[in-house]
Each structure stands twice: as C-alpha cells, then as structure tokens.
C-alpha cells in the first residue's frame, strides 16, 4: 500500500488475489464461493502485518494461498520482486525455504510417529542443511536451546504427544525459522494455547522476525494480540480488506464501521476509556451471492441506500491508512 517504495524492496507483495471455490451439486453449479475476493497488500522485510476478521472471512485461505498450500483463482504474489509462481516452478524447495507457515493446532503439526529429533533432522535433510548425522543433531540441540527448550536432550527423543502445546508451537516456529524464510504466515498460532504461555510464543515470534528480518503475516481473530505484535493491521470482511493501516492508527482511530464495531467489542482494549459498544446484528452472510454494493451494508449501522449499489473503493486517508467506506466522516 505504501506506493512510493518499489516492488523490489518488498519481501512480499500481493496483487488482486481471488480464490473462488466451485460448489458441488447441480442446483448452484454456477455459483462460486468467493472466499478471497480481491486482496492486495505488501510487506517490507521484517514487517509484521496482522490480519483480523471473523471466522469465515477468508483470512486462513489467504494465508494458505500465500505459502502455496492452495492455488489462487487469479492474482499474483511476488516475493522479493520475483513472482512466486516462477520461483515455485523453478525450484519448489527454494520456494518452501522463502515462505513458511506456522499452523493453528500445534498438537497436530507434527507426524505423531516422529520424534522431535526426527522431525527436525528430516527437514534439514530435505533442504540439505548440515553434512552428517552428528552435525545435524548438534544443530538440533543448538536450535532447541536457542528457542528456550532446555536442556534440549530432554526433548529430542520425545514424541509430539509427550509435549505441551506451547513447547510444540515453539518447535513448529523453530522448524520454520530453520529454513531462514523471507516471510512467514502464522495462522492463529496462539489461539489453541493456554493464556499463560501465549505471551511467550508471541514474543518469540516477534523477536525472531526482528532478528532474522523476516516479514510475517499474523492471522488472528484476537484484536489485542494482533495489536501487540503487528506493525500494520488489515481488517478483513467477506474476503476483502476493508481497512488497513499502521496498528496504532487503526486501533485508536478506526474509520470503517466494521472495524469500529470490532474494536468496540474488544473488552481488554483501553477499558478505562469506557467506549460505547457497537452491536451489529446477525452473522456474515455466506460468500456466494454478494450483491453489487458494499459487503458490509446489510449489517452496517450507518448504511444507506447508495451502499447497496456502489462498491466502495479503498481510499487513502493519510498515514498509510486505507478505508473502504465513503461515509467515514459522518
């Protein structure tokens, strides 16, 4: 979104990503489910973008598309200025080294029949990291201790079900970082963990990103966590980014009605400010037959006639803050 910087300096830039799923069954054959419907953004090296939104708004699909676990229907992703499609065709392993993903469920991230050492060593083998078995083992120990799992020999020969969620998520992060990726997608990495260890994991992620200068897309529905970790925030609704900008700017000065409603409902945030809670009725509609107008119009508290016809464009309101709502000043 920061238009002045050229594409080459971006760790990742995404343009007009669409992902439509075909529906099965005869009756609605021609109606696609529009999971991601035109998303563009870009990230500098070491920058963290928080993506927030309700469940079903397409944020996880977006994450999976970014690391090519799914193919987008259309749109382009370039990493460091190179289209990821080309990179993937040339050398799939090299692409995997540039883009990594951290999953939501740490208990299911590793093959239950593999020990931690085997998980890490097989990853190293696959990417030709390290020469001999002993060297790889030493690297594993090093890695685990660096990630705060001490003493590492305690963990090496354990199976995933013998470890806690926090430990597993640490290992998952370490495995991803082992490949020194250009950017990481973290798909709700702490939502399945105990509240007590969330902060540790979040800090670990943030520190690693800053150290290695890795860009990160942090997907979450938890506004407070996202606010804490990210440099910029993008709010998604029904497959589109409705508002994006620097974290503080968006959090303290939300413009889009949806963002306002989200933030007003987030209890922990600035509780002393005594904000008025905005209620929005209903659930997000299924993304099949979206009318021509604004996606949020049916639930919006300030919607008016024109909202049902005109699709709002993303407008810059200063400071890298973009909003897709024409009536923000009222």
């Amino acid at each position: 979104m920061q238009t002045l910087i050229t594409a080459e300096e971006k760790a990742i830039s995404v343009e007009n990503i669409y992902k439509y799923y075909k529906q099965r069954g005869k009756r609605q054959r021609n109606q696609d489910i529009k999971s991601v419907d035109g998303v563009s953004f870009s990230l500098n090296k070491g920058e963290i973008l928080g993506v927030i939104g309700e469940s079903g708004c397409g944020k996880s699909t977006l994450g999976r598309i970014l690391v090519k676990l799914e193919e987008p229907t259309s749109g382009s992703i370039s990493i460091n200025g190179v289209p990821s499609q080309n990179l993937f065709k040339q050398d799939p392993l090299a692409f995997r080294r540039t883009a990594q993903m951290i999953f939501q469920n740490p208990f299911d991230t590793f093959d239950p029949r593999y020990t931690i050492a085997k998980v890490l060593i097989s990853t190293m083998k696959l990417h030709h990291i390290g020469e001999s078995k002993n060297e790889r083992l030493a690297m594993c120990i090093d890695l685990l201790e660096k990630g705060g799992l001490k003493p590492a020999t305690e963990y090496l020969h354990r199976y995933p079900h013998e470890l806690s969620g926090g430990q597993l998520q640490r290992i998952s992060i370490l495995r991803s970082m082992l490949l020194e990726p250009m950017f990481v997608v973290a798909d709700e990495p702490v939502s399945m963990l105990d509240v007590s260890i969330r902060a540790d994991i979040i800090n670990m992620l943030a520190d690693l990103c800053k150290q290695e200068n890795t860009a990160m897309v942090f997907i979450s529905h938890d506004i407070t966590t996202t606010r804490y970790i990210s440099d910029r925030v993008a709010v998604m609704y029904l497959g589109r980014i409705v508002e994006t900008g620097p974290t503080d700017e968006v959090m303290h000065n939300p413009q889009h009605p949806y963002t306002r409603a989200l933030i007003s409902n987030s209890v922990q945030l600035d509780s002393f400010e005594n904000q008025q809670i905005i209620h929005i009725a209903g659930e997000p509609p299924t993304p099949i037959n979206i009318g021509p107008g604004c996606r949020f119009a049916p639930r919006c508290y300030q919607s008016r006639e024109s909202c049902n016809h005109e699709d709002p464009e993303s407008t810059h309101i200063g400071n890298g803050h973009y909003v897709s709502c024409p009536y923000i000043n009222e």
Binding site: R64, V67, L69, P92, L93, F95, R96, R97, Q100, M101, F103, Q104, N105, D108, T109, F110, D111, P112, R113, T123, L126, H127, S172, R175, L179
Partner: peptide, 26 residues
C-alpha cells in the same frame, strides 16, 4: 486433511514422500 500433512507440504516434501512416509505409516 490433518495439519501435519499440510505441514509436510509447507516444509517442501513431495506428494509421494508424504504418502509413503506419513499417510501410510499413520
């Protein structure tokens, strides 16, 4: 559909390796 299969993809393993090393043993 399990996460660790996705994980194996995202780490760069090939389909056949995943079938032989993860799906069948599990």
């Amino acid at each position: 559909e399990r996460t660790f299969i996705m994980g194996a993809y995202s780490i760069g393993e090939k389909k056949w390796t995943i079938l032989l090393k993860h799906i069948i043993p599990n």
